[in-house]
């Protein structure tokens, strides 16, 4: 169960635009410890950009994201002097290390083995010892049914296995929170079920997650709250039951209906 008193991060009025097109237009919300927050909404509504901003892959233009460890990514854009820039860069890297990201298209290093994919960042970025990291990789792979694939090249794996490797790669950094970007959209129903099961397993460990998905049934069953994002704004943030029962707008009601009937 989420601990509503402890916030993992709080996004406050975040804005982001790309070459003049504004993608995020003032989104504010918090993620709490042990919470799973679902993000749904029409394609092109800014869901992926939102996740990238939360991990620091994209820098926000305006607003601020305050993290549990005191780090703040802000869009004030103060670039005065090298020292300030350095600190900014450092805190950015720190945020990325602790906020795990799983991509829709896996983004694995195809030419490396599963083990290399898993151990590279902990060794290089966190400076951890190879034997320690390898043991952790073996552990996690065993848990997620990849135990026999450790030394396979990633290019040999199926889509479902690749997505599992991508999830384990993020977990290897021992993140405080995991951002999952439509991780089942490239998979067939059986594999989708497979990956959903992993999310449920992770839920049991108490890891906080933000889950972008189009599977409303799945989202309803695992998420503590669901946020409806459209045209760069959070239209409604509510429990799955409330989102269905009391949609704040015609848009939300319509979208929920379509998603539900598509199942």
């Amino acid at each position: 169960m989420p601990d509503w008193d402890i916030e993992v991060f709080t996004a406050n009025d975040i804005h982001k635009s790309f070459v003049g097109v504004s993608v995020l237009r003032g989104i504010s919300f918090s993620l709490h410890q042990h919470e799973i927050l679902g993000v749904i909404g029409p394609s092109g509504g800014g869901k992926t950009t939102l996740l990238k901003c939360l991990n620091g892959l994209e820098l926000i233009d305006r607003g601020a994201i305050r993290y549990w460890n005191g780090f703040i990514l802000g869009g004030d854009g103060s670039k005065s002097g090298n020292v300030a820039k350095r600190t900014k860069e450092d805190s950015l890297l720190t945020v990325r290390r602790q906020v795990g990201f799983v991509f829709q298209g896996y983004n694995l290093w195809e030419e490396k083995t599963v083990l290399q994919n898993l151990t590279l960042a902990p060794i290089v970025v966190l400076g951890q010892r190879r034997d320690v990291v390898t043991e952790r990789a073996q552990d996690l792979c065993g848990r997620f049914g990849l135990g026999h694939k450790l030394n396979s090249g990633v290019w040999r794996l199926s889509g479902g296995q690749k997505q599992r490797v991508a999830i384990v790669r993020a977990l290897m950094m021992e993140p405080k929170v995991l951002l999952l970007d439509e991780i089942t959209s490239a998979l067939d129903p059986v594999l989708t079920f497979d990956v959903m099961q992993i999310v449920r397993d992770l839920q049991a460990t108490g890891l906080a997650m933000v889950l972008v998905t189009h599977h409303i049934e799945f989202a309803s069953s695992v998420c503590d709250r669901i946020m409806f994002v459209s045209e760069g704004q959070a239209i409604q943030v509510d429990s799955p039951q409330n989102l269905r029962a009391n949609p704040v707008s015609e848009d939300v009601r319509h979208f929920m209906e379509i998603l539900s009937s598509a199942r």
Partner: peptide, 28 residues
């Protein structure tokens, strides 16, 4: 793009990306 983005998302610095991701990729 995704190859580099994955490294960035894990907190790699520009230097680490070049040495551990870009160089092995282009060598191959």
């Amino acid at each position: 793009h995704g190859v580099v983005e994955a490294g960035r998302a894990l907190g790699m610095s520009g230097r680490q990306l070049t040495i551990h991701i870009v160089m092995p990729h282009i060598a191959r």
